[in-house]
Nucleic acid binder design. Structure first.
Length: 494
RNA sequence: GGUCCCAUCGUCUAAUGGUUAGGACAUCACCCUUUCACGGUGGCAAUAUGGGUUCGAAUCCCGUUGGGAUCACCA
């Protein structure tokens, strides 16, 4: 209890005294996972909400996992959402290098030092093969300490000098209970007996995450370590390393995972969307960022729409949640719709333009964008909404039958016959004029507005639902194409 | 299995001992309307469970159940 208090106090003190430094330390796996991006966001916000620094570090100590071009995706994603780093592989800084594979000599140096300090030992055991041993299921055996610990240090050094392959393995000497404070989870107690003597330096000379993160976080003067809660159970091991070196551990902020459903994490393996997948589907980066900020955090009031800047202003790590959050694409879609609607007409038009690529008919793009903007929640929904612009789809004349509009194919035929000559005379082809003349036509022939407008809309589109009404479609299609489509509809109606 | 962690509407969450348990998404209904949307109004919907502590428990404690994590020369 005393230690818990002490720990908490030290953490608190550190928060107050030092300039906050957080780091995002992804592995270059080739895509930006939503959960990772959220972690990066929280790291960024913890730093920036207190005027601190956000550092980017690449954790590529597992050569088997290396993917070409993966770091570029990391750079691009962070830039795209506006999370700019103060130090990193591309821009350098006072604590470089910022790529772990380039720090190899540093880890080796500290690993050997840790052995001297009694925090680790050399181990010459052969690689443990995968699921080979049933004995692994025997808890008593699993907890057995590494026999190589018994090798005298001098002898171990001789074997290494002789070229024997070795790893550096952590010593767990302590007994009793380890206590540490976490910003999200509070005080956590773990028995030292639960800790295994894991490999710190691999036989290829590169460190494991378990070692590299401690060395780098200390050397880079990271004050707040934010990471997934799967690291909670190994945190005492890291503290042991800090302790052996006489270093002070950082403030820990373990965050719960982002879930796909109640029992599965969001993961690329399950085919779940990554950041770039979502962008490709027409989600705006700003909306994605806003949405994931709220997966596990809330501002304490009822606001939901936040720019990165606004998040920086009101973020507090104390409002981070400890239970997992399910990623709800429906809510993201809604939020994306909000962002789309808040775009200026020009901004939306620019973003929508690429989605018009399949339409070769000469259409009014500006009018189309204006019609689409309030009607789509993702840019990806655009093509299905505008397919009729290229070509009127096959449709049944029964489509002209509409109870609410009080139309039938017969009425539609009459309406289109009345409308055709009127439209041909319209010179200023804009929405206001068109609506005016069509309304007048209805009044002149004692018909309801809908009895004129509905058939026109169907004639122009061949679809039951369209982005915009009759006159809006007419403007989008232009006079020539509109007239053409009405004539061909009349033919169809016999 | 050992250990650690988690548990409020279907989903994201608010309420840090006293609220008719609030908001948002989704859903449903209605209004608006030139189809569909947008927008507006309203409805449905939650404290996993059993014990305590307390005048009073979603909130504190214990058990149960359910879920997750971890026990790698992966991070």
């Amino acid at each position: 209890m005393f230690y818990a208090w002490l720990y908490y106090w030290q953490s608190k003190k550190k928060e107050i005294q030092m300039k906050t430094r957080t780091r995002f330390a992804p592995s270059p796996t080739g895509y930006m996972h939503i959960g990772n991006l959220r972690t990066a966001l929280y790291e960024y916000l913890i730093a920036k909400s207190t005027g601190g620094d956000f550092i980017l570090r690449i954790e590529d100590t597992d050569q088997k996992r290396y993917v070409e071009g993966a770091t570029d995706i990391i750079f691009q994603t962070l830039k795209r959402v506006g999370m700019l780093w103060d130090e990193g592989p591309d821009i350098g800084g006072n604590f470089g290098p910022y790529v772990q594979s380039e720090r190899k000599p540093i880890y080796a140096e500290y690993a050997h030092k840790l052995v001297e300090l009694g925090g680790a030992h050399y181990c010459f055991c052969a690689h443990k093969d995968e699921e080979e041993d049933e004995e692994n299921n025997n808890p008593a055996h699993a907890k057995l300490k590494d026999p190589c610990r018994l090798i005298p240090l001098e002898e171990a050094k001789k074997r290494i000098a002789a070229g024997e392959s070795f790893v550096v393995r952590q010593n767990i000497n302590k007994k009793g209970t380890s206590v540490f404070h976490d910003v999200v989870y509070g005080d956590i107690e773990i028995d030292y007996d639960e800790l295994d003597e894991g490999v710190l330096l691999k036989s290829d000379g590169l460190p494991t995450y378990n070692f590299a993160n401690v060395i780098d976080d200390h050397l880079m003067q990271i004050t707040h370590v934010v990471r997934g809660n799967e690291y909670i159970s190994s945190t005492p091991k890291y503290n042991l390393i800090y302790e052996a070196f006489g270093w002070e551990p950082p403030v820990y902020v373990h965050v719960p995972p982002v879930m796909k459903d109640a029992q599965h994490k969001l993961s690329k393996r399950n085919g779940d969307a990554s950041f770039q997948d979502l962008v490709a589907k027409g989600y705006l980066p700003e909306a994605i960022l806003n949405y994931i900020a709220l997966l596990g955090w809330n501002p304490g009031d009822e606001r939901e729409i936040f720019s990165l800047q606004e998040l920086e202003e009101c973020f507090s790590s104390e409002r981070l949640n400890k239970s997992p959050a399910i990623f709800d694409i429906a809510k993201l879609t809604w939020m994306n719709g909000c962002y789309i609607r808040h775009l200026s007409a020009d901004e939306f038009a620019k973003l929508a333009e690429p989605y018009y690529a399949d339409i070769t008919t000469p259409i009014n793009h500006m009018a189309l964008s204006a019609a689409l903007q309030p009607r789509v929640e993702t840019l990806g929904q655009i093509p299905e909404q505008i397919d009729f612009l290229q070509k009127v789809p096959e449709y049944d004349v029964a489509l002209y039958e509409n109870k609410k509009m009080k139309t039938t194919p017969e009425i539609a035929k009459k309406a289109l016959e009345l409308v055709l000559p009127v439209l041909e005379k319209v010179s200023d082809w804009n929405n206001e004029n068109l609506f005016e003349v069509l309304k007048t036509t209805a009044v002149d022939h004692e018909m309801k507005n809908g009895q004129i407008l509905y058939p026109v809309r169907i004639a122009l589109s061949g679809k039951e639902t369209t982005p915009g009404g009759a006159t809006e479609l007419a403007v989008i299609l232009g006079k020539d194409e509109s007239i053409k489509r009405i004539k061909s509809a009349l033919q169809k109606l016999g």
